[in-house]
Write a protein that binds this DNA or RNA. Structure first.
Length: 419
RNA sequence: GGGCAGGUACCAAAGUGGCCAAAUGGGGCGGGCUGUAAACCCGCUGGGGUAACCCUUCGGAGGUUCGAAUCCUUCCCUGCCCA
């Protein structure tokens, strides 16, 4: 292979990798390193760190995972680093308050869940899963002092999160300041060529470059990926905000959640979560503006595609059918949560139960006040009839089951006790 | 170690003796409109009660008072300034 070919292939790889990124620091460095990798037949070491806080991987994570996959497609070595040690500290990124440190057990459990989930996207054969406690856990106090001596307080405090907290009078603990240094040291330990992260990680990733240089290594190339907005379209997708879609959620849930996003968010999701070409997506926008495409159909295609990614096409078809059935044709879902009604004998009068008791005792709602509130607001439906009387008694003596609907989305099949 | 300012519901933030289950905004939930859209409009958002009303809540624990989120004591937590 001559130099010209090498340059050509490197360029091709570069373009493939650049798609969807926010920033590559530095582009020329990446190009140069791709060339070197091809020339020496040595794959690049690509690192991405994950905090073991969320037991569920959601679509937000997949933006990054998909980029990791792209590196794998090109034969590079991808290291999925579970920050089990740094998890004990808590990443201050984007935080206005100190993160609560996790326990060892929680971290282990979450780490295991990660392992089980990431291979829905990454190639298990080509993925190295590592834990940073492997090296961080055995650093001596001396090592740590030595590490901290390589950076200044001012540089650590200049980052936005800290500056903001400092200004608004929120506490910053010393261990939080140390976080970026620890993450940077991961790059040293792994001799990373590239580190991937969300845009919120930019600061940490850059510290990695500086620290690697201090340790006599060539600084890693930093690639940042956009943060995916959550279902609300405003905040970033996160478990704690509850605006997320977990990749292990049932197909129907994923489908439904995607269908509920706004049209503008839909395009964002297309861009970051599917392999559709940007050109095609832009064309759709024009078609919608011209009234030639119903955005609903496009959204259905998005929902289908995402479900198919994680559950296969058959499940995606099923989810789509079920969705149409329940929400377009207003029919009952095929599967509903079944609840066997069981009330204390004293309250059971010939298998006739008060609606409030029914809701509370079957734990569908958490208090009697809430049950009343729901009924008064017209949010409770029994066998297709809106319940407007909070004293309604539900008869199970001749009819063995009832269909209960709460709001628009929650369905229950209530069954009489079998005894 | 000293001085000052704070800690209010899911979050932010008013309230500084009774009119406070606690303004307002956000979030959430329900209804309307719709494409389960989004946006928008209306309502609800501690618990018990059909209701009158009662019970629990304003960092923790005590106290003053007929009555405390509000006053006092003490403890815990946070920020700022000084050392």
């Amino acid at each position: 292979m001559d130099e010209k070919d090498i340059r050509l292939i490197a360029r091709e790889q570069f373009d493939y990798l650049k798609k969807g990124t926010v920033e590559i620091i530095q582009e020329e460095e990446l190009l140069a390193r791709l060339e070197k990798s091809i020339r020496e037949r040595k794959p690049l070491r690509v690192k991405a760190g994950f905090d073991p806080t969320a037991p569920d991987i959601h679509l937000g994570h997949t933006v990054l995972l998909r980029k990791m996959k792209h590196f794998q497609d090109l034969g590079h070595e991808v290291i999925f680093l579970i920050g089990d040690f740094t998890g004990l500290i808590g990443d201050p990124s984007g935080r206005s308050t100190t993160r609560k440190p996790m326990t060892r057990e929680e971290i282990n459990r979450n780490a295991e869940t990660y392992r089980q989930q990431i291979f829905k996207i990454l190639d298990p054969q080509k993925t190295v899963v590592d834990f940073n406690s492997r090296w961080l856990g055995s650093l001596t106090s001396f090592d740590i002092i030595n590490l901290t001596a390589k950076y200044t307080v001012a540089r650590l405090l200049e980052r936005d999160d800290f500056a903001l907290r400092l200004k608004s009078g929120h506490p910053i603990c010393v261990h939080e300041i140390l976080y970026p240094l620890m993450q940077a040291y991961d790059s040293v330990a792994l001799k990373a060529d590239v580190e991937l992260g969300g845009t919120d990680q930019k600061f940490n990733l850059l510290v990695g470059r500086d620290i690697q240089r201090e340790f006599g290594q060539q600084p890693q190339i930093v690639i940042t990926m956009p943060l995916l907005e959550g279902l609300d379209g405003i905040e970033k997708m996160s478990k704690s905000l509850g605006n997320y879609v977990g990749i292990t959620e049932p197909p129907r849930e994923i489908y439904g959640k995607i269908m509920s996003i706004s049209d503008s968010l839909m395009f964002r999701y297309y861009e970051l979560l599917t392999d559709f070409e940007l050109k095609e997506i832009e064309a759709w926008k024009r078609e919608i503006a011209a009234g030639r495409i119903n955005p609903r159909d496009l959204k259905a295609q998005l929902a289908w595609t995402i479900v198919a990614d994680f559950w296969g096409q058959e499940e995606a078809d099923k989810a789509a059918r079920e969705f149409d059935r329940v929400f377009r044709h207003k029919e009952l879902p095929q599967e509903m949560t079944e609840i066997v009604v069981a009330l204390p004998q004293a309250q059971a009068k010939a298998y006739s139960y008060n609606i409030i008791d029914l809701l509370v005792n079957s734990r569908i709602v958490s208090s009697r006040s809430e049950a009343k509130r729901l009924i008064r607001q017209g949010g409770v439906d029994l066998d297709g009839q809106r319940v407007d009387d909070i004293n309604l008694s539900v008869d199970f003596s001749w009819q063995k089951e009832h269909i209960l609907r709460l709001g628009k989305k929650r369905f229950f099949r209530l069954k009489a006790p079998t005894s």
